[in-house]
Amino acid sequence: MSIEQESTLQKLVNEVLEREGNGEDISMNANLGEIGLHSITFVKLVVQIETTFGIEFANEDLIMEKYETLRDLLNYVQQKLER
């Protein structure tokens, strides 16, 4: 698992949530809801991830409840990148 990809994802979350800093304080093991994401910001994050990593989420994978933690989301991104 790339540290760089982790940092990128943390940074994107930070941007979507309009927080200060670069997102280093966001735990990869924290629940997405606890981080502050909800249905709208999650979809915004998906669009940012798609643009940044050059992947496309399947429609059925657009549901936030499918990912418990940020690490689950990163795992999904990595699976897409490996295909």
């Binding site: 249905s39 979809v43 915004k44 998906v46 669009v47 798609e50 429609n59 059925e60 657009l62 549901i63």
Partner: peptide, 21 residues
Amino acid sequence: GQALMYRNMIMKSAIDNNSKR
């Protein structure tokens, strides 16, 4: 589950302007 997916597809289209969705 389908309705939830459709809502998120529509929200995503509102952001990236993909009308096919």
